[in-house]
Design a protein around this nucleic acid. Structure first.
Ligand SMILES: [Mn+2]
Ligand SMILES: [Mn+2]
Ligand SMILES: [Zn+2]
Ligand SMILES: [Zn+2]
Lengths: 159, 159
DNA sequence: CTCATAGATTAGAATCATTCTAATCTGTTG
DNA sequence: CAACAGATTAGAATGATTCTAATCTATGAG
C-alpha cells in the first residue's frame, strides 16, 4: 500500500499526526544527528523527546514532566519509553542525572560542569554556571577510591 | 500485679528483654535527656533508637539499616516507627536528612556544618569536616529566594 | 524493494521505599 | 489509679521506577 516517498514518510510517522515534527524541523534534524552519533536508532519517540530536550536552552526534567510535555504536544509515547530514553540518553552522555530530591529524579540537558540552585518549595532546578562557584580543599578520598565528581546544591526557599 | 519497683521497671520495658538497655546504661541516660530536651516522650522505641544513633561517633543510617540494627539487637520496633522516629528526630534538629541517592534517604547524626564523600558503589557516606572544603562565590539566589543551605557531595568510586 | 531480525515500544504487572490508616497501647498528669 | 493525648503498629495504600513479555519497527542484506 505504500506507493511513494511521501506516503512512506507518513506511514513511518505512525500514530503521530506529524504536527510536532513539522513544527520543529531543525530540532528534528539536530536530534537525528545526535542519536546517530550516539548509536541510538532514530525512532519516532526518541526523535520527539530529543526534539523537546535539545532545543538550545538547557533544561531540567523529570520523567513525568517530560511525559506530560510530549503528551501535551499530541505525541503518544509511553511513560516506560520516557524512562528508557532518559536512561539511554544519560548513558550516551547526552543527559546528566541530578539527585536533589528523595522523591524523584531529575535529568539535566546541561552535561557540562555546573552547579544548581534547588528551589525546595517548587522542586525546580536553576543552573549556576560552572565557573561561578569555586570548591577548594576537597580532601583526598579514602584509599582505593577516586573522585567521580563534586556536586554542589544551593538549596533555596522563599525568602 | 505490679508489686515493687523492680517489677514495675520490667513491666514498663514491655516486649524487650531489657538486654539492650542494660548493655548501654549511659547511652540510655543521654538519650533520655536528649528526648526530654526535644519535648519527645521517652518511649521504649525512641530510647532504643536514640541509644543506637547517639553513641558518640557520627553515623549515617537509612530507615532500613537502622531497623535491621535495632532488630538484630533483639528489640522489637516496627519499620513505621523507625520512619516516624527518624522524621521526629530530624524535626527536633537531632538528625539531618542527606539526599545523595535517588533510591533511598539517609539520616545523619552529625547536624553540624560538614560535607560528604558518597561511595556510589557501596552506598556509604563518609564525613568531611566542615572546615575542610571551602565553597566560594555562591551567587545571590533569584529574587524572592534565600539560601537555606549549601550541600557539597564528593561522589567517589573504586579507583 | 522485501524480508529477516535485532532492537525498540508498550500495557500492565511488579517492586520498593515511604506514607497512611485506624486500631491498640502507653507515658503523663491529676 | 484513672483518663487521655500522644505513640506504636500491622497492614493497606501510594508513587516513582523497573520489569515482563507481547507487539512493533528500523535497518541492512539480498
Ligand atoms: Mn503523565
Ligand atoms: Mn523513593
Ligand atoms: Zn543544570
Ligand atoms: Zn555526615
Amino acid at each position: 500500500m505504500v506507493r511513494n516517498m511521501r506516503e512512506a514518510a507518513r506511514h513511518a510517522m505512525g500514530r503521530t499526526s506529524g504536527r510536532a515534527a513539522e513544527r520543529d524541523p531543525q530540532g528534528q534534524a539536530a536530534a537525528q544527528a545526535r542519536l546517530k552519533a550516539s548509536g541510538l536508532r532514530p525512532t519516532r519517540q526518541r526523535l520527539e523527546l530529543a526534539g523537546l530536550l535539545f532545543q538550545g536552552h538547557d533544561r531540567h526534567v523529570t520523567a513525568e514532566s517530560l511525559h506530560d510535555e510530549v503528551t501535551r504536544a499530541g505525541v503518544k509515547v509511553s511513560l516506560a519509553t520516557v524512562y528508557n530514553t532518559l536512561h539511554q540518553f544519560t548513558g550516551a552522555g547526552l543527559l546528566r542525572q541530578v539527585v536533589v530530591d528523595a522523591s524523584r529524579s531529575y535529568f539535566d540537558t546541561n552535561v557540562h560542569d555546573h552547579q544548581h540552585f534547588f528551589h525546595e518549595d517548587e522542586g525546580r532546578l536553576i543552573d549556576i554556571p560552572g565557573e561561578t562557584i569555586a570548591v577548594t580543599n576537597v580532601p583526598t578520598p579514602p584509599d582505593g577510591l577516586a573522585v567521580d565528581r563534586v556536586d554542589v546544591v544551593v538549596r533555596v526557599k522563599r525568602a
